[in-house]
Amino acid sequence: MNLPLNLAKSSLLALVIFWTIICAKEGLDHDLFLVMLLSFIPIFLVVTIVIIGTICPIYWIAKKEHINNTQLFKTYFPYYAILAFLICAFGIIVSDFDIYLTAFFVSAFITSSQSWVWFANEKSDHETA
């Protein structure tokens, strides 16, 4: 598992999605540029917590059972995606479609799903062996 690369790519993706949604609504202001750059730090932290806390444990447990990444993705990703979608949709509705929270939940859902794909595309140990 190439966790650092996955975290870097996921953080960048989350940053782009988050600010694209906000800028589409609020407009692009060059005063916002510094905030965008600085926001990479909290976004990276959130992405790290989500990926290490929710995706990695599934891979670590499944590794012991010698399941390859593709099989693992096909078996567990659907339930993860459904649960993540329901939580994100609930969050968006409860926030009454507040733009910042909507951007947060949308980027969280897309980023975590794409992170699964990146993990699944890596060759697992016994696939390479």
């Binding site: 096909k74 995606a81 459904i82 979608f85 595309n121």
Partner: peptide, 20 residues
């Protein structure tokens, strides 16, 4: 219901791996 919900929300990501 489960297949329908999953296809609608994340079929795009799933097909990326299926497609390989």
């Amino acid at each position: 219901w489960i297949n329908g919900l999953f296809s609608s929300i994340a079929g795009f990501f799933f097909r990326k791996i299926e497609g390989n």
